[in-house]
Write a protein that binds this DNA or RNA. Structure first.
Lengths: 236, 236
DNA sequence: TCCTAAGCGAGAACACTGTTCTTGTCAAGT
DNA sequence: ACTTGACAAGAACAGTGTTCTCGCTTAGGA
């Protein structure tokens, strides 16, 4: 009862270390062989443990994979935030915005399998846990901040977009409007979501190997794409 | 030696039927349980065969999956072509173009797992066979035709895009320029590839379940997206 | 017409996998 | 000092992909 609050008990500390070690080994396996080939027994072998011992820490293979997915989400969100913070001093709105998709791509290209954990084929029956909305929101926030800043400073170009905004469309994107873009015209909100969609799409197509014989220099194409997106959103 | 050329031998005919049956059962399994859960033994059970018997028709689980992937590519290409043909009479360039991404989305939403076979996480070590470039090219051709037709008729709007075209970028997209867009400015080629990227991205995000709590009406958002893309490309 | 070789399917076997249950051990907390 | 709880190991079970051997059937050439 009189347990020290700050320092966890030795039991808890070693348990956390063990959990982290299992996750690290599992992540390494996923990184080099893919999520489909993740084997509980093989990570147990790497840790010189009996397979059954892992069940003290994870409910099974699916739970371990879920933890890896959550870790990937968190890592991606951290990367996006880091990039946004590092670009904070940048004078140009567009450059501050560009820094984030650039960082996301770099992260994805270096960890194709972990990118796949987030944006690849989901396992049917597996429901994305509620916890994914939080890291997702952090990424979104990192990409949104420069846009809102430009808007408030009156530096956001406001030309009409090609598609007109129907009621169904306004309704469809209300969650995004409310959470990220208060006081922003719906057309701009739609453009922002489309930018996010394009960023994910172009990264996925590169990382999943669809650029063979099509795009010879993926980085140059990505750079052009995000600059185009910045222009469409209305950043200088 | 005096074998009838047109009618295949009875052996060959029953072999083809058997192969098709195996593929059909395997596709059904993938459709409802996902590619990861595809089990040779379970399709053998469905067909009342011994597992080893399947090896007369496919080299193993990976070969069977490869065949399913190729079938998905072919089905998607056929769908895109069908939509392009059906819209041939449409007077508006934009409407003719819009018909193809609409058909692709409809196909994907109805077969999320097969969409995942094409655009989801690839199995590491699995190299997309050379045969995928042909169906890929058919989809591209279906989406490109209305653009080229509009160009030749002088109906393609030609405003400058936001990003300027560097030498690296021009170089990066040469395969696409040569194969699909002869005589088209590089900026337009880039916009067309970006449109394809966005179409794949928005469909993948929907089909893979990333629109929860974000886009309440995926179809309305998709419709707005492709209209916006058509405008950006320069179709009316 | 017969005979042979090829194609086919079944069955057993091997090395794996995820998962559960039981057993023993060791270190906390009372 | 004792007891409770967490931990790890081991055995076992069902399931998997794959290989090999064995008969059977049948098509094609003598």
């Amino acid at each position: 009862m009189a347990m020290p609050r700050t320092a966890r008990s030795a039991r808890e500390r070693v348990r956390e270390e063990m959990t982290a070690e299992i996750l690290a080994v599992a992540r390494a396996h996923v990184a080099e062989e893919g999520a489909a080939a993740l084997s509980l027994r093989s990570v147990a072998r790497d840790l010189e443990l009996a397979p059954s011992a892992l069940y003290r820490y994870f409910d099974g293979r699916d739970a371990l994979l879920s933890a890896l997915i959550m870790a990937a989400y968190a890592a991606l969100a951290a990367e996006a935030e880091r990039a946004a913070d590092a670009a904070r001093g940048e004078p140009s709105d567009a450059e501050r915005w560009l820094a984030v998709p650039r960082a996301i791509r770099r992260w994805a290209v270096g960890r194709p399998q972990e990118w796949g954990l987030i944006f690849g084929t989901p396992v049917p029956g597996y429901e994305a846990p509620e916890d994914t909305v939080e890291p997702y929101a952090r990424v979104a926030a990192a990409m949104v901040r420069p846009v809102n800043e430009a808007k408030e400073a009156g530096r956001l170009r406001m030309e009409r977009s090609h598609a007109d905004v129907s009621d169904a469309l306004r309704e469809a994107v209300t969650p995004v409007t409310e959470a990220l873009f208060p006081e922003m015209p719906v057309a701009k909100v739609v453009l922002a979501i489309q930018a996010w969609t394009t960023v994910v799409g172009v990264i996925s197509l590169e990382v999943f190997g669809h650029w063979r014989r099509t795009i010879l220099d993926p980085e140059a194409f990505f750079e052009a794409t995000i600059r185009e997106l910045a222009g469409q959103i209305g950043l200088v």
